[in-house]
Design a protein around this nucleic acid. Structure first.
Length: 491
RNA sequence: GCGCAGGUGGCAGAGCGGUCAAUUGCAUUAGACUGUAAAUCUAACGCCCAUGUGGCUACGGGGGUUCGAAUCCCUCCCUGCGCA
């Protein structure tokens, strides 16, 4: 393959962008020539590749005729993901309660781990980290979230008890969620504080060490996050830890997942328009910075749409983010009922945002994943969605079936000889042939096996559901399948 | 038989003169969980009306002291341990 690298290097970035897309495309897909390219240019190429209309890493196989649902194939260095697909959450580089060798039996295709938590636990070890795939013994597609969600969950979300037991709602008087500021004056003072010491900027993992189990979280309700335009300060037992777009991307590159996410600040439907707009503009600046911070070219980066519960802001955000050279797009700040938003709000968010996202690129819905939500998301053109529900609720005794969810710990299941779900192909139902009565006993005796079996079932259930959704799209029967499935769910 | 220690709500176990319908844990019941502060959390848990700084019955049985007893005294019953 003949390539005029010299010529490329002489042109300016803007002319390069406009005139050399094809060459860039070739370069990116030719390993031997890629090595010849300096890292400076490499960044540039990554920007270029995303402008190319023909997206090579995502193929839409079939579009639904009556909805925006689509079935596709997402290609990553560690294999393909057939979409729509559930993304199983493995925050700390492990799917809780499910050993990695059992994951293949759960139909899991893609796992998402968390930048913030791994940054905190690994600390300086990140410099020589062997990569998530190796660590997790998972040689299939992986994704990392940017840590942006923790900006919300440790900050505003924590302060207002959102998404947790639903106990702090409703919130009437809102602060703007900028950390410990208790008045506008305080807030201004906090924002004007220097972003971070330069030493921290130089050594990206400065100040980090391996941590004992987190105790700094003890106590509830305190906002542990201070957001500045530059980045975010997390209050930890080691003092404040600074995270920003550059560091998040740096960490995500060290972690080495196949898909990474731009650093963002989620807002809540409880935030007012003014703050949501301010935050959204910050998220947009962070998105650009995330793109510029890239040093690897073998990861897909998703930009995140925010905008809270406001139509104009969602559109503004989707339009802005949608134009950026990301390989995929995520919609963030979508909330279920527990986040203080009616269910319809999530639908609105999708309706407002999705039309502005490039059709040919993959779309991810962050943090959403109950049955009805999944159908809604697919119907509105989303390809992947991660959610904690299958694993968390499994550990808490809630089992998902096609007839709805039930709490296996209830007394009514004592001695029950019924399987978790008739005909289910998961290890718990199939190979181990566990009954509801046995599972209840395990939960009651606090046997670790309880969470394990329940997780195996729930993870399988959602992956299997999405497989059936995918098949229904391929067969042109999506709406029919959706209606039939939803009508069988008992409340 | 004597000595010692005990008998408290489904269980375990606090309380040892008023603020005790009684701490706490377990159990039970109900609810929650949506980019994992979570194998977790919240609530109810004597009975009755259910509006309450509401009524009633309760800390082995009976009796007593006291304005007032789960708490002090007497007595009976029961349990455990030790000694005969």
């Amino acid at each position: 393959m003949q390539l005029d690298l010299k010529g490329l290097e002489q042109c300016t970035t803007s002319s390069f962008l406009s005139s050399s897309l094809e060459k860039a495309y070739i370069l990116l897909h030719d390993a031997s020539s890629r090595k010849k390219v300096s890292s400076l240019w490499e960044n540039c190429f990554i920007v270029c590749i995303s402008y190319i209309n023909e997206v090579s890493y995502f193929e839409i196989v079939k579009k639904d005729s009556s909805t925006d649902a689509r079935a596709g194939i997402l290609k990553t260095p560690h294999g393909e993901v057939r979409t729509p697909s559930y993304v199983v959450v493995g925050t700390d580089a492990a799917v809780r309660c499910v050993p990695s060798e059992e994951l293949p039996h759960t139909k899991t295709q893609l796992i998402i781990a968390n930048t913030y938590h791994l940054w905190r636990t690994l600390g300086k070890k990140l410099e020589t980290f062997e990569g998530l795939h190796k660590r997790m013994k998972w040689n299939s597609p992986l994704m990392t979230d940017s840590g942006g969600f923790q900006v919300f969950s440790f900050g505003f979300g924590r302060e207002h008890g959102m998404g947790k037991m639903g106990n702090a709602l409703p919130v009437r008087k809102l602060s703007v969620g900028t950390g410990r500021a208790s008045s506008p004056a305080d807030e201004a003072a906090l924002r004007s504080r220097p972003a971070r010491p330069d030493s921290c900027r130089d050594t990206k993992l400065a100040g980090l060490r391996e941590l004992p189990p987190d105790n700094f979280l003890a106590g509830r309700g305190k906002n542990l996050v201070r957001v500045t335009d530059d980045g975010v300060y997390f209050s930890t037992e080691d003092g404040e830890q600074y995270l920003d777009a550059e560091l998040s991307i740096y960490i995500q590159e060290k972690l080495g997942a196949d898909i990474i996410v731009a650093f963002d600040e989620p807002t809540s439907p409880l935030h007012d328009h003014a703050y949501t707009k301010e935050s959204l503009e910050r998220t947009h600046r962070w998105a650009i910075r995330s793109l510029k911070a890239r040093a690897r070219n073998d990861q897909l980066m998703y930009g995140v749409v925010q905008g809270g519960a406001f139509e104009d802001l969602r559109k503004e955000s989707a339009e802005f983010i949608g134009k950026q050279p990301f390989e995929g797009f995520a919609i963030g700040g979508s909330y279920g009922e527990s986040m203080g938003a009616p269910r319809e709000q999530m639908l609105s968010v999708l309706r407002w945002s999705v039309p502005y996202l490039p059709k040919e690129k993959p779309r991810h819905l962050l943090g959403i994943g109950r049955i009805e939500d999944v159908f809604d998301a697919v119907e509105h053109g989303m390809d992947t969605f991660d959610c904690v529900i299958p694993t968390r609720e499994a550990r808490h005794g809630s089992l998902w079936t096609a007839k709805g969810r039930f709490d296996v710990r209830k007394g009514s299941f004592e001695g029950s000889r019924e399987p978790i779900e008739e005909g289910c192909g998961c290890i718990a139902c199939g190979e181990k042939n566990i009954t509801r009565g046995e599972l209840r006993e395990l939960f009651k005796s606090k046997n670790m096996e309880a969470g394990h079996l329940a997780s195996l079932h729930n993870v399988y259930f959602f992956n299997n559901l999405l497989e059936r959704v995918r098949d229904s799209i391929l067969e042109g029967e999506f709406s029919k399948f959706r209606d039939r499935f939803l009508s069988n769910i008992h409340r």
